[in-house]
Measured scan of single mutants.
Amino acid sequence: MALNTPQITPTKKITVRAIGEELPRGDYQRCPQCDMLFSLPEINSHQSAYCPRCQAKIRDGRDWSLTRLAAMAFTMLLLMPFAWGEPLLHIWLLGIRIDANVMQGIWQMTKQGDAITGSMVFFCVIGAPLILVTSIAYLWFGNRLGMNLRPVLLMLERLKEWVMLDIYLVGIGVASIKVQDYAHIQAGVGLFSFVALVILTTVTLSHLNVEELWERFYPQRPATRRDEKLRVCLGCHFTGYPDQRGRCPRCHIPLRLRRRHSLQKCWAALLASIVLLLPANLLPISIIYLNGGRQEDTILSGIMSLASSNIAVAGIVFIASILVPFTKVIVMFTLLLSIHFKCQQGLRTRILLLRMVTWIGRWSMLDLFVISLTMSLINRDQILAFTMGPAAFYFGAAVILTILAVEWLDSRLLWDAHESGNARFDD
């Protein structure tokens, strides 16, 4: 018995066209964080690309023209004298008006014999932002004059995390709450300039795509075929072959399989920071003279006294001054041990922890910024005066060393310790 099946006739004509040209192939790229070699397709503007294995951002879609970056830099340069030299806060102490600005706080630190601690604050609040705007201006002028731009481009990517104007702005709020127990506070004209400078700096850093600047100024022929001998440069993120001198053909720094002496430098910085954190938390970090009496505060006791007036601000200072430094030390110690013992479990967790400490590390400088600003506000000789204690130097040095330890660690070593050939990683 035959089955009668109805015929289905399409209502619209289906047209099949042959592909007349070869589909576009992607360029081969190595991930600078996990060293995976993959094919990167062509990316349009405002599109980002991520590593298929570790999800690290390979290409950032946010990109401004150099002219727009230069305009932002010149605007920031105009704001800087007002943000640093004009009063941020006014207080009335014992019937006398006192003005506080950024430069005055750094000068008070240096004047009291601790120039190293003052230079830490100076670099993060004044030096690094000033280098940022002058570097962008150098790129703008240098591109037109045919100057060598490689050193500036190499420095810009590392400079971003040292620009800490946003953290200093939080420190202004913390210092205001600490001082309000002794005097009446009012915002100064410099505060508005400083807030504007923070906003412009944040926007500029978020749109400063150094890798795209490398592509514009020093374009290189990408690798179009897969080759395990391809290496990625950690300076400019170019994937290719080393030249005859073993250097990256684009930025001219040595092109090595792994960062040289990464573990040794990381261990040295980490152990030194552990040693410095002990006096930083045991010795007094601030000293207040009130009517001839002397009151010393460690980091913890200062947080407890701050909690009596504002528990939320005390929580912020606790996280930045105690929780973050010790968390960074514990995480980095764990990561280094996992590399030495070739741990194969929990790779995803370790990668996330490394990215976390990379982002939060700079916030530990908050305590030094609060001390710097408070020193310029309260300084009335023996009637009422505020000065920093010996722990300030140890704390600042420990924070900087932990930042350097994270920067010096080559994250690809975590993958080397893991089993080879993993296309995915999980716990």
Results as ranks from 00 to 15, higher is better:
17 R>I: 05
248 C>G: 00
397 A>W: 06
174 V>T: 06
271 L>E: 03
283 L>G: 03
151 P>G: 02
54 C>S: 00
401 L>C: 12
270 L>C: 13
214 W>E: 01
46 H>P: 12
8 I>Y: 06
58 I>Q: 10
352 L>W: 11
70 A>T: 14
237 H>I: 07
35 D>G: 08
164 M>E: 05
246 G>Y: 08
146 G>K: 08
286 S>R: 00
57 K>Q: 10
242 P>C: 07
128 A>V: 13
365 M>N: 08
329 V>Q: 12
194 F>G: 10
31 C>M: 00
147 M>H: 02
85 G>M: 06
153 L>W: 02
41 P>Q: 11
241 Y>F: 13
302 G>Y: 00
317 V>G: 02
131 I>R: 00
226 R>G: 09
311 I>C: 10
423 A>M: 13
360 I>M: 11
274 I>K: 11
96 I>R: 03
161 E>V: 15
314 A>G: 05
33 Q>C: 12
114 D>N: 06
229 K>V: 08
363 W>P: 05
37 L>N: 11
323 L>E: 01
353 L>E: 05
78 L>C: 11
20 G>C: 11
347 L>S: 13
336 L>A: 09
129 P>V: 08
363 W>L: 03
10 P>V: 12
63 D>V: 15
253 I>N: 02
257 L>H: 13
131 I>V: 10
211 E>A: 15
102 V>L: 14
199 I>P: 09
54 C>G: 02
223 A>W: 07
384 L>G: 01
77 L>W: 07
264 Q>R: 01
279 P>C: 14
173 G>Q: 03
413 L>F: 10
110 T>F: 01
149 L>K: 05
166 D>Q: 15
11 T>D: 11
183 A>P: 01
59 R>G: 08
93 L>W: 02
374 T>G: 02
395 F>C: 01
299 I>F: 08
364 S>V: 00
201 T>C: 10
253 I>R: 02
61 G>P: 12
392 A>C: 08
5 T>V: 08
132 L>M: 07
270 L>W: 05
210 V>T: 09
224 T>I: 09
80 M>D: 09
116 I>G: 07
39 S>N: 10
238 F>A: 06
233 C>F: 00
323 L>G: 09
32 P>I: 14
304 M>E: 11
174 V>F: 14
215 E>T: 09
202 T>G: 14
364 S>Q: 00
303 I>Y: 07
54 C>W: 00
381 D>T: 03
71 A>K: 02
16 V>K: 14
5 T>S: 12
348 R>D: 08
118 G>Y: 01
68 R>D: 03
159 L>K: 01
295 Q>T: 07
23 L>Q: 07
357 V>D: 10
281 N>A: 06
71 A>E: 01
171 G>R: 00
154 L>T: 06
255 L>P: 03
168 Y>V: 06
262 S>N: 03
261 H>K: 01
324 V>H: 15
160 K>N: 12
424 R>F: 13
120 M>S: 03
148 N>R: 04
94 L>I: 09
58 I>Y: 11
379 N>C: 07
153 L>S: 06
241 Y>L: 10
240 G>K: 05
44 N>R: 09
426 D>N: 15
24 P>N: 11
53 R>F: 10
389 G>D: 00
342 K>Y: 11
227 D>S: 15
406 V>E: 07
318 F>A: 04
362 R>P: 06
270 L>H: 08
324 V>S: 10
375 M>S: 12
153 L>E: 00
312 A>H: 14
343 C>I: 11
78 L>K: 01
19 I>R: 11
61 G>L: 15
404 L>C: 09
291 N>Q: 06
273 S>W: 03
29 Q>Y: 08
181 D>K: 02
84 W>D: 07
36 M>E: 15
97 R>W: 14
225 R>V: 08
176 S>C: 06
214 W>N: 08
174 V>P: 01
400 I>V: 07
240 G>M: 14
95 G>V: 00
